[in-house]
Amino acid sequence: MGDLIMFGIQIGGVVILLGLGFGIGGYTERKHFKRLNAREIECKGVLVSTLSSHPYADPTQGSEMVIGECVIATDYFKSFVTKLKKVIGGELRAYLSLMDRSRREAVLRLVADAQAHGYDAVCNVRFVSADVGGSSSMKKGSAMVAIIASGTAYRRVAPATSAS
């Protein structure tokens, strides 16, 4: 009987965590995506490219490295669903949005860094996924992703001569 109660408590805990993950996790994710979309529209004026040359660069204005970082964790519900999905394999859609969110957030921070220093273009954007917690963070089953985006910020020449 005691075992049964313990089992019940454990199941109850998992269900509560699943509910929290699904509810709050889903809500924060939707909110984050909304904010990302809005901020990306705001940052339309900044030319972001992966070219290693400086397209339309104004040679008198100099350039500087800019960086954006972001660490995002997944929620309990998603890691639970993913554990089930791992049995059959295939694409893990729950983690796809996690990677997407942190990359976009990192790029937006990089662009914000560039704008704060008075630049209006960023080239040679690179992504590195960092391992903040070391390999231990993966053992707990809850995934988190840390992204460093780096690029070179510079000023463009007057838009009259550029095709953008």
């Binding site: 965590l17 929290l20 993950g21 709050i24 996790g25 924060t28 994710e29 984050h32 960086i67 970082e69 972001c70 660490v71 995002i72 964790a73 997944t74 929620d75 309990y76 998603k78 957030e105 960092a130 903040v132 917690g133 707990k140 809850s142 988190m144 840390a146 460093i148």
Partner: peptide, 22 residues
């Protein structure tokens, strides 16, 4: 971060750590 892992979202402490190390 352990709490945040349940509900998801940005781990600000770790982002800060990453900024400092970088």
């Amino acid at each position: 971060a352990g709490f945040k892992n349940m509900v998801g979202g940005e781990l600000k402490g770790y982002t800060q750590l990453l900024v400092e190390s970088r």
